[in-house]
């Protein structure tokens, strides 16, 4: 039996098809979910994909947060339902207060688009359990507002609780505090990541196949439930 993983499409989502493809490649069944419906269609996990939901108007992810599907996701997430937010999805998770902090304009004001090396720091989350602690991976990074910001107290909490799941390596920095590329919630079921694992699942189209492990991790965790 294959597990059902929902991929949400908001108006302006770009990477929903790639995320669905990554779910399939990892051995899951990708289920398209629509922003305007609150129906999770009995999925066992959800991916919020990259893109420019609602044109990034107001703030990235700010309007997507109020989509009917997000009400269902926020409720489910508080009960341990696995959620991965990639890029714009990460921004939506922060705006929804499922994750602390916020993503702001890259400090050099450039839209960054490159293959980026990351160090996986926490392998206890649903989405990173298949990595080795300290493992270095290369996946694409592409965003204009990827600078992770939070207050000192939150930063201290994230670091002391090991909730930084990935950090940039060899990076001239987008201004992200402590070179944070991704974080998780306290329980480890909700993960937000700025770079794009769904674009690194096949040698033909990606810089590596490192990204696939995020998806296989979650499917493995579902088996254990």
């Amino acid at each position: 039996m294959s597990f059902r993983v929902g991929v949400v499409t908001f108006p302006g989502s770009l990477d929903d098809r790639d995320a669905a493809r990554a779910v399939q490649m990892a051995g899951g069944t990708a289920v398209p979910l629509f922003h305007a419906s609150d129906d999770l269609k009995e999925v066992q996990a959800v991916v919020l994909p990259g893109g420019f939901s609602y044109g990034d108007y107001l703030r990235c992810g700010a309007i997507a947060r109020f989509a009917p599907i997000m009400n269902s996701i926020v409720t489910a997430a508080s009960h341990g339902f696995p959620v991965l937010g990639i890029c714009n999805g990460f921004q939506v998770l922060c705006e929804s207060h499922l994750l602390p902090g916020a993503l702001t304009r890259n400090s050099n004001l450039h839209f960054l688009c490159r293959d980026q090396k990351l160090k996986i720091e926490n392998t206890n989350t649903v989405w990173t359990s298949g990595f080795k602690p300290g493992q270095e991976i290369v996946i694409p990074l592409k965003n204009g507002e990827g600078s992770f910001q939070c207050d000192d107290e939150t930063l201290k909490m994230l670091e002391s609780e090991g909730r930084v799941i990935a950090r940039y390596v060899d990076f001239d920095s987008n201004g992200s505090r402590n070179l944070i590329a991704g974080i998780s919630n306290e329980r480890g079921n909700v993960v937000g990541l700025m770079p794009h694992p769904e674009h690194a699942i096949e040698p033909l189209t990606g810089p590596s196949t490192d990204g696939l492990t995020f998806f296989t991790s979650a499917l493995q965790q579902l088996v254990g439930r």
Partner: peptide, 13 residues
Amino acid sequence: MLKPEILDPQGQA
């Protein structure tokens, strides 16, 4: 407004 402690690269530009 952005809080004073939050970097504002647009304002700097």
